[in-house]
């Protein structure tokens, strides 16, 4: 289990990294935290000719609050997100979600940019980006592109990022004062890939959703912002309405079958998550089957 031989370059600047990517294209891979890339190389699932290590690029690291936007550098590690007071104050959904990302050793190395660019459909952060209405910022030699999270993820391990581009940052709108969030995933063990997960950001006024964005993951080839959420906004939610929404959600999804769960089980669990998420966001345990 050793990687085949490859060349290695430690980028000295974003411009230098982009030069290398422009020169090598598909045959190069960007090394960020290495938590997905290195195992794949050691298993010889991928054999890049060149690794472009961006670990030295301090400009890609860190969390900055600018007005009502949080800018998170691509090299920001999961552990830094988890411990960041800015994230906890302005994007608490992320703080909660990061706790579900693998294990501490992996969170100490893995980066947000790496996770988003890798676009594993079972991973937590892409779904959070959808729920948070984030913008993903990529840079290539022609310049910078700002891509809405909803347009960024295009398939299993596929994104709008071209091989010549580098994901440099994400921008997340600061959570409104009256907003609330929910995150949960069903995984066989703590830290495992989710069987089904959901990340939600909502605004609740007088017990009614003024806004609800709920993104599911591990239920398709990319994270999915549930359309059914629209039915739950500006209405008094009853168990009947929620059950109907849950059923409708099943029709939105086209989940894959794997060793952990059949497609039917994923649909079922997504429905359970919707019910539990809405119940939690509204603070109404009665909606999730608990005795009133």
């Amino acid at each position: 289990m050793k990687a085949s031989a490859f060349s290695y370059a430690r980028a000295t600047s974003v411009a230098n990294a982009l030069d290398l990517l422009a020169a090598h294209g598909d045959s190069a891979k960007v090394l960020s935290g290495g938590q997905s890339l290195m195992p794949a190389m050691n298993l010889r699932l991928i054999n890049p000719e060149l690794l472009v290590d961006i670990g030295d690029l301090a400009e890609l690291r860190g969390i900055v609050l600018r007005g009502d936007v949080l800018r998170i550098g691509a090299l920001t590690r999961h552990v830094d997100l988890l411990q960041s007071p800015e994230i906890a104050a302005h994007a608490p959904l992320l703080t909660e979600a990061i706790g579900h990302v693998a294990h501490p050793a992996i969170r100490n190395r893995g980066t947000i940019g790496g996770s988003l660019a890798h676009a594993d459909p079972a991973s937590e952060l892409p779904a959070c980006m959808l729920a948070l209405k984030a913008t993903i910022i990529v840079r290539g030699q022609p310049g910078e592109r700002r891509i809405a999270a909803g347009d960024f993820f295009t398939g299993i391990y596929e994104t709008a990022l071209s091989p010549q581009e580098l994901l440099v940052a994400v921008e997340v709108p600061v959570a409104r004062k009256d907003s609330t969030h929910f995150f949960h995933e069903f995984a066989r063990r703590h830290g495992d890939y989710a069987i089904v997960g959901a990340a939600a950001q909502a605004v609740v006024r007088d017990g009614v959703f003024a806004d609800l964005r709920i993104a599911f993951f591990a239920v398709g080839d990319r994270p999915l912002l549930a359309k059914v959420a629209a039915r739950l906004v500006d209405v008094a939610i009853t168990p009947v309405i929620l059950a109907e929404a849950s059923a409708a959600l099943g029709e939105e999804l086209d989940p894959q079958e794997d060793q952990q769960a059949s497609a039917a089980m994923r649909r079922h669990l997504a429905g359970v998550l919707l019910v539990r998420g809405v119940s939690a966001l509204l603070g109404r345990p009665d909606l999730s089957g608990a005795p009133a």
């Binding site: 298993l43 066989r188 063990r189 703590h190 830290g191 495992d192 890939y193 060793q259």
Partner: peptide, 28 residues
């Protein structure tokens, strides 16, 4: 609760790695 070597009908072991073969871990 967790462990199983999953073979397909052609005799291929389909979960020969630590991500897919679930050993018990302290969290559970």
């Amino acid at each position: 609760l967790f462990e199983k070597c999953i073979y397909d009908e052609r005799g291929q072991l389909t979960n020969a790695n630590m991500a897919d073969y679930l050993v018990p871990m302290s969290g559970e």
